[in-house]
Amino acid sequence: MTGTGGPGVRLSERQRLAWLRLIRSDNVGPATFRDLINHFGSAERAIAHLPELSQRGGARRQIRIATPAQAEAELAAAARFGAVFVGIGEPDYPAALRRIDGAPPLIAAIGDLRVAHGPAVGIVGSRNASISGTKFATRLAREIGAAGYRIVSGLARGIDAAAHEASLDTGTIAAMAGGLDRPYPPENLDLYERIREGAGLALSEMPMGWEPRARDFPRRNRLIAGISLGVVVIEAAARSGSLITARRANDFGRLVFAVPGSPLDPRAAGTNGLLKEGAILTTRAADVLDALAPISRIAPDDEPLIEEPDEGATPDWDPPRDDERARVAGALGPSPVEIDDIIRHCGLPAATVHYILLELDLAGRLDRHPGGMVSLGSGET
Results as ranks from 00 to 15, higher is better:
residue 174 A to N: 04
residue 284 R to I: 01
residue 80 R to A: 15
residue 192 Y to S: 03
residue 59 A to Y: 01
residue 44 E to K: 14
residue 321 R to K: 13
residue 186 P to T: 11
residue 255 L to P: 02
residue 93 Y to V: 01
residue 6 G to T: 07
residue 47 I to P: 02
residue 244 I to N: 08
residue 216 D to P: 10
residue 120 A to E: 00
residue 143 E to W: 05
residue 124 V to M: 07
residue 89 G to Y: 00
residue 36 L to C: 07
residue 242 S to R: 04
residue 310 D to E: 15
residue 198 G to E: 05
residue 6 G to P: 04
residue 148 G to Y: 09
residue 236 A to I: 06
residue 337 V to H: 12
residue 300 P to R: 13
residue 56 R to E: 10
residue 306 I to P: 00
residue 98 R to T: 09
residue 26 D to C: 11
residue 137 A to C: 13
residue 173 I to P: 00
residue 177 A to E: 02
residue 310 D to Q: 14
residue 133 G to E: 04
residue 306 I to F: 04
residue 128 N to W: 11
residue 308 E to F: 02
residue 42 S to D: 07
residue 351 A to V: 14
residue 217 F to Y: 08
residue 194 R to L: 02
residue 336 P to H: 11
residue 20 L to M: 07
residue 379 G to N: 12
residue 27 N to W: 06
residue 352 T to H: 06
residue 282 T to E: 00
residue 54 S to M: 12
residue 121 V to D: 00
residue 188 N to C: 10
residue 180 L to W: 02
residue 145 G to Y: 01
residue 129 A to F: 03
residue 44 E to G: 15
residue 240 S to H: 05
residue 88 I to H: 00
residue 373 M to N: 05
residue 52 E to Y: 14
residue 49 H to S: 15
residue 104 P to V: 07
residue 127 R to S: 06
residue 157 R to S: 08
residue 164 H to A: 10
residue 102 G to N: 12
